[in-house]
Design a protein around this nucleic acid. Structure first.
Lengths: 217, 217
DNA sequence: ATTAATTTTTAGTCTTGTCTAAAAATTAAT
DNA sequence: ATTAATTTTTAGACAAGACTAAAAATTAAT
């Protein structure tokens, strides 16, 4: 399994986490910032290896084996992200790039020991679930901040988009995992919200609100 | 800097740690388990990049820049080895392979944070010195076990060869860093030694004794 | 000081993963 | 239902890094 192959499997998984859907060549190309022709080549190769099924002009769908590999890479990615934040004082907007490298390290023992070292965590620093050794992904019960109405209260439990700039924006306004959020007002026109976080009021656009996961309990 | 380039620089450094000597093409090929013709190609490439000087039919010598890169990779390798042993319960015969991968992760912040996390250690699990951020390598004052005479006492502070089988042999006989060693008898014929470690006596061949570093203080 | 053995380099080939440009298939639009 | 637009595939090329086989240079040996 080369680095490139692993990245293809991961991309396809992210584009169709629910196993059934076919992923279009172009979608993969766009996600990996490569050309469609390169994707066609690689997808054929992975098909030969039995890691996905490929139908010309239709796209690719991960096989059980391919999916297993993809999930394992995501497991590693998220464990390393948590390690960086918890043990090495990285902030959540700094971890992605490094984890993209670390996720390709091959050593089953390393992964399991790291998992134990971190206390068998269930979520990474962005609130994304960490698959277990068998490849099961914990299901999480969360909704988007944008679904709340004025007066609602909730707790931030994750972000949909882990883009560094978005995360830095959240840092600036004190929004972090576990933080309480209260919706003070919601503007019907543009769906922007006035929210209170850490006793401070800030107005967030709909774009922001649809990228923050919350739980109300 | 590709993975391959990094491995060449590292190999050349290991073959001539003392900066001055030219390293023969064949020596590099042998160390990297590759062919001499491949080495010639790569060495030319690295020469073009200013990382070493290459004289046809003579060999290669690292430049300041090339040496700096090599030392940094070794720094990372040794920090990761220590991490694996100290934090993830690896034994010293299991770390090399994984560290060979981890040493290529690119993130200055990661290295410095890891260094701090480990308490800015000076030696790795095999007793090898860990270069500092500036590339300085602590000089160590150690000798080989084989230089001792009957009656001498010393402490094991490192191994010359980190081969997994050798390390497992040491494990089996309780020889580890920090362990006290007493030379009970030395056979003039084959230079083998009878030594006491952890109250047990074992006979070690000259081959073994010339691969164990000790300090007497 | 030649010849022999060894080392190193050159020349040409291969694989992996990428690309561009052109052809083919699919989907959308009138 | 054709034509137009888009997507996907094919064909051919390229760079990196390795290899083999043959040529050239160096070193060793008689």
């Amino acid at each position: 399994m080369t680095l490139s192959e692993e990245n293809y499997l991961k991309a396809i998984f992210h584009l169709a986490p629910e196993a059934d859907a076919m992923v279009a060549t172009n979608a993969i190309a766009h996600r990996l910032e490569t050309k469609a022709s390169s994707v066609t080549d690689m997808v054929k190769k992975l098909s030969d290896k039995g890691l996905l099924t490929y139908v010309p002009y239709q796209g690719a769908r991960l096989s059980k084996k391919g999916r297993q590999i993809a999930v394992n890479i995501i497991r590693k990615h998220r464990l390393w992200e948590l390690f960086l934040v918890e043990k090495l004082n990285f902030s959540w907007d700094e971890v992605h790039e490094v984890a993209e490298q670390l996720e390709h390290i091959k050593s089953p023992k390393l992964v399991e020991q790291l998992d134990d070292f971190l206390g068998n965590p269930k979520v990474d620093p962005h609130g994304d679930p960490i698959p277990d050794k068998e490849g099961n992904i914990p299901v999480r019960d969360h909704r988007l901040l944008s679904v709340l109405k004025a007066g609602d209260r909730a707790i931030c439990v994750g972000v949909k988009d882990s883009d560094a700039n978005f995360l830095k924006y959240l840092n600036k306004h004190g929004i972090a995992l576990g933080e309480k959020i209260e919706v003070i007002d919601k503007e019907p026109f543009d769906e922007s919200m006035l929210i209170r976080v850490r006793k401070k009021e800030i107005r967030v656009s709909q774009q922001i609100a649809t990228n923050i996961y919350i739980e109300t309990r």
